[in-house]
Design a protein around this nucleic acid. Structure first.
Lengths: 133, 133
DNA sequence: CTGTATCCACTGCGATACTG
DNA sequence: CAGTATCGCAGTGGATACAG
């Protein structure tokens, strides 16, 4: 780790920029929320889910994007993909320890949102009326 | 596109969905980190910055995107834009209390990235060799 | 059930030129 | 210095059809 201490997200070439790219992915955070158990009760107990379950929960996601996003998260070691050779085949996705640690970050974002989005919306309305006038 | 009931249900337990639009923005997190003072010493002491300063710090950002992102953050009440009528004009951006509270979340993301991206890259290499073999 | 493959509309975003 | 305006394309992502 010759350069780890020098990671600087402000630099264009910095690898940590890629984390931001990952977070920016349209479905990544929602998938982390789903597998993190946020959909059940908000307690955030990690919950393995099947492809069809995710597809149902994230209604509106296309097959292409769901598969593509799950693959990239698996590639990054954030979740595991387990195939059970039943008929038809059963595939289960589950967060890894790394994935759960990232999920803690996204949970923080979510709690921030729950507490502050109202204020954000208020600011937006105020700004829009101020600008249009 | 169509607003299905289950999609809404998931949003109900994952209200950060609207926050995600903000966070997903390519430059939002870096701007919050910059104005949050992360660029100086990592202590996270909020630091007002000028347009040109931000432009220099955020390597690779275009004028268009910097201006556009700053405007949307101002609209959301996350930062303030102060114009000082010098010649030439001086514009200073500064986090609001709301912006600083969100910055605490983004600091978590950034530190997660700087601590865990090495592991992510290791997983990627392993995955790629496993797939190509 | 769990995907792959292909087409293509839309847009995010950089590049460039111009302005108060 | 701090923007605004416009163009163009590469990439995102939805729709659709096919498959193990």
């Amino acid at each position: 780790m010759s350069t780890k201490a020098q990671y600087d997200a402000f630099l264009a070439v910095c690898p940590s920029r890629q984390l931001l790219a990952r977070i920016s992915d349209k479905w990544v955070v929602l998938i982390l929320c789903a597998l993190g158990g946020d959909a059940q009760d908000g307690t955030g107990v990690p919950t393995p889910m099947r492809y069809s379950g995710l597809s149902r929960l994230l209604a509106g996601v296309s097959q292409k994007m769901l598969t593509q996003t799950l693959r990239s998260l698996e590639r990054d070691g954030l979740l595991t993909r387990s195939v059970t050779p039943t008929v038809p085949v059963t595939v289960t996705y589950e967060l890894t320890a790394l994935g759960r640690s990232l999920h803690q970050m996204t949970r923080g974002l979510r709690s921030w949102a729950q507490q502050n989005m109202d204020e954000v919306f208020t600011h937006r309305e105020e700004y829009d009326t101020r600008v249009s006038s």
